[in-house]
């Protein structure tokens, strides 16, 4: 008897899907909750590992124009996404050599290590492979005793207190980030995401931690095995996005993008604009999440990555 799989295989229908599922496995019980993936690697269009490696000269200069043309036609094959993303996000200059990049990578890993130690000295749970979801200090800086991991004396410094108050918030969000992916069933992986976000919000205290940054950071943590490398990819992405996350009592940065969107729609489709104006007063808040986390929730994990790739540069 011929199995269904064999028949499907003959028509080649599911070949692409199986390939992708192996890279970013989804928890079986969550399959119904997430959007269907439409991206398929296509031979001759998608940037493959072979094409990628062929785009480097002997000492490591990258023909970025050629690579970008291909990415725009068919995205990046999952097997090399992490490597390519470091260039797309601008972590490395395509005109640098292998040698230059190794050095830079080393320096960056050390710098991240220093920040991590600094944070660890204040809150020892950082870097332990565990993370917290309950507050470690009260709103006015008094320590909350409960695990032994935590703070022992009152925190007077405003920057430190602000940061400490965001740590359990980050934890509460980490357990809810891309929960459909098998990757985050593992507590060590959750802790990796927590560490990167915690350390980022310490370093960029002007912005701190705002919900939605977890959705931006998660792909980096999955694609880049090394935590420091993931951090630097996230840091690069945030250079472009951090203004969206700037919060004041009256507004959130992303709203300036919403008003740009509103202007665009008003110009290209005045009737649609009028309709939207009638519905929500023209604030375009329906698009808030789309622009804040760059369509991560509208598309499946893989499709969102594809969208980011073709939208880069």
């Amino acid at each position: 008897m011929v199995g269904w799989e064999a028949i499907a295989g003959m028509f080649g229908k599911n070949a692409g899907t199986e390939d992708l599922e192996a890279f970013y496995p989804v928890r079986p019980e969550c399959k119904a909750d997430i959007p269907k993936t439409r991206f398929r690697p296509r031979a001759g269009k998608t940037l493959s590992a072979r094409r990628w490696h062929a785009a480097f000269s002997e000492d490591g200069h990258l023909d970025i124009a050629k690579v970008l043309r291909r990415i725009q036609r068919g995205g990046i094959h999952p097997s090399i996404k992490g490597l390519v993303w470091e260039f797309l996000l601008g972590c490395f200059d395509p005109n640098s050599s292998f040698e230059d990049r190794n050095q830079l990578r080393q320096q960056r890993r050390e710098r991240y290590g220093m920040w991590k130690t600094e944070c660890q000295n204040m809150v020892p749970v950082i870097g332990s492979g565990k993370f917290i979801t309950t507050p470690i200090i009260t709103d006015d800086g008094q320590p909350i005793e409960d695990g032994g991991w935590h703070v022992t004396s009152a925190v007077a410094d405003k920057k430190v207190a602000q940061w400490m108050l965001s740590l359990h918030q980050i934890g509460l969000d980490v357990v809810r980030t891309d929960r459909a992916l098998t990757f985050y069933e593992n507590e060590t992986n959750q802790a990796k995401l927590w560490d990167v976000l915690a350390i980022y919000s310490w370093v960029d205290d002007d912005i701190g931690y705002v919900q939605g940054m977890n959705d931006i950071c998660s792909p980096m943590v999955i694609l880049l095995e090394n935590e420091a490398d993931a951090f630097w990819c996230f840091e690069r992405a945030m250079r472009k996005l951090r203004e969206n996350f700037r919060c004041s009592t009256n507004s959130i940065g992303v709203q300036s993008q919403l008003s740009t969107l509103s202007q665009v729609i008003r110009t290209v489709d005045p009737k649609l604009h009028q309709h939207l104006e009638d519905l929500d007063g023209g604030e375009y808040l329906f698009a808030f999440r789309m622009l804040m986390v760059l369509f991560r929730r509208e598309f499946s994990f893989i499709d969102a990555l594809y969208l980011w790739e073709i939208g880069s540069r």
């Binding site: 929960r179 808030f288 804040m292 986390v293």
Partner: peptide
């Protein structure tokens, strides 16, 4: 849903 996606903005 034991674990729900966190809400960004308003749903």
């Amino acid at each position: 849903q034991p674990v729900h996606d966190l809400t960004i903005g308003v749903e």
